[in-house]
């Protein structure tokens, strides 16, 4: 096995799971998410020589995936409402066996994430799952950092509001909106 193939294997094993989660929350469809990972990895293989820094691998892959998703999104001109409904329907139930209060809260949060409009959900995913800074998100989305800050603020604000009895949500809404 040559070095290039070994590098690719390592990349796949290290990041396929993260890519899948990112793709899943982006598109809300497990099958499409897997396709996105496959397409992303094939593109990554072709462009592997441009990856010089192992630390940059994850954001590099997530960027490829996000663009791949955007291309598919433009091609299919998906109805955002349908997309969101699809995401809600396919949310996995990870609450079995968990603390009932925490489980209920997580379920509410999952549903709230699914309800987020893509313009809020995408930068949030890039920040939380991808580790991108506001400046990096702005550069990737082609908007100003201030606009990204606003989108992230509103995304979290909506999520907190959705959590019933959440003090932080009330506080945030009260103090900063």
């Amino acid at each position: 096995m040559n070095l290039r193939q070994r590098q690719f294997d390592a990349l796949v094993h290290a990041h396929a799971g993260d890519l899948y989660r990112f793709a899943y929350w982006l598109c809300g469809d497990p099958s499409r998410a897997e396709d996105l990972v496959q397409e992303t990895m094939l593109r990554a293989w072709r462009a592997l020589d441009s990856l010089q820094d192992a630390a940059a691998a994850k954001p590099w892959l997530l960027t490829i995936l996000r663009r791949e998703h955007a291309r598919g999104f433009e091609r299919k001109a998906l109805d955002l409402t349908i997309l969101d409904d699809g995401l809600k329907d396919s949310i996995p139930d990870e609450t079995a066996g968990a603390d009932p209060e925490q489980a209920g809260s997580d379920a509410e949060l999952r549903e709230a994430i699914a309800k987020l409009e893509p313009k809020y959900r995408e930068p949030l995913l890039m920040q939380v799952l991808g580790g991108f800074s506001c400046e990096e998100i702005a550069a990737e989305l082609g908007v100003k950092p201030g606009a990204v800050m606003t989108q992230l603020f509103r995304a979290r604000h909506k999520l907190r509001k959705s959590l019933s009895g959440d003090a932080v949500g009330r506080e945030s809404a009260h103090g900063v909106s």
């Binding site: 690719f8 799971g17 989660r21 897997e34 094939l42 996995p92 990870e94 997580d106 799952l129």
Partner: peptide, 26 residues
């Protein structure tokens, strides 16, 4: 809240053999 958000986002399990399938496709 961030911890909870991160946990929820990461609670989605990738298919067990996803990596192998990616390598097979490649």
């Amino acid at each position: 809240f961030e911890r909870q958000l991160r946990n929820v986002l990461q609670s989605v399990d990738a298919p067990e053999d996803l990596g192998e399938r990616v390598l097979l496709t490649q």
